[in-house]
């Protein structure tokens, strides 16, 4: 719901009404319910995913909605580059940015395997981690990604991914999209 609000609806009630309408028209369908940011139960709409990925998808929408608002082309789900299979792909500056949203559920080894996939190409990887401790971990694990990996926390990314010095690389240099 927060995602729909970002698209220009003044309050969550208006947004809710719009979403309800869309469900009756058959444009979107309800996938399930999750606890949102303020401990409210909210619906999740969108492409089909497994039940345990609902929160992940909802959080991803919160980030992608900023890209949508700025008119930056993005894709998620089955439309992403099949070679890398990131959570979402964003196109900016004529480059592809693979967006990877992490919820600190993967173990180190699984994460390393995930990051090694990106080393096949030279595209940027936007890695969103839940907290700073995880960022520190990713920095160690993904050090071989060198000039590809950009890190930030979910709090920053969902607020404004284009903000000043939101992203940082593995050496701790700050930059902004």
């Amino acid at each position: 719901m927060t995602a729909i609000q970002h698209l220009g609806y003044p309050g969550w009630q208006a947004a809710f009404r719009w979403a309800e309408k869309q469900v009756t028209y058959g444009n979107i369908k309800v996938l399930g319910k999750v606890f949102g940011s303020k401990d409210k139960m909210v619906n999740v709409y969108g492409w089909q995913c497994k039940a345990d990925q609902l929160v992940h998808e909802a959080e991803l929408s919160d980030i992608l909605v900023h890209f949508e608002a700025d008119g930056i082309p993005w894709c998620r789900g089955e439309d992403v580059d099949s070679e890398f299979r990131a959570d979402a792909d964003v196109r900016e500056y004529g480059h592809v940015f693979h967006l990877e949203l992490d919820r600190d559920t993967e173990r180190r080894r699984a994460l390393a395997r995930r990051l090694q996939v990106y080393a096949k190409g030279s595209d940027f990887v936007l890695f969103v981690a839940p907290h700073d401790r995880r960022i520190k971990q990713v920095r160690e694990i993904g050090s071989f990604l060198g000039d590809q990996l950009l890190l930030t926390t979910y709090a920053k990314a969902s607020k404004d991914p284009f903000g000043k010095n939101v992203w940082e690389d593995i050496y701790g240099n700050k930059c902004s999209l």
């Binding site: 500056y93 940027f124 060198g146 990996l149 690389d169 240099n173 930059c175």
Partner: peptide
């Protein structure tokens, strides 16, 4: 000097 993603990105920008 270490070239990270931040350097590369600002270069592109």
């Amino acid at each position: 000097i270490r070239i990270g993603a931040a350097w590369r990105l600002s270069n592109i920008q």
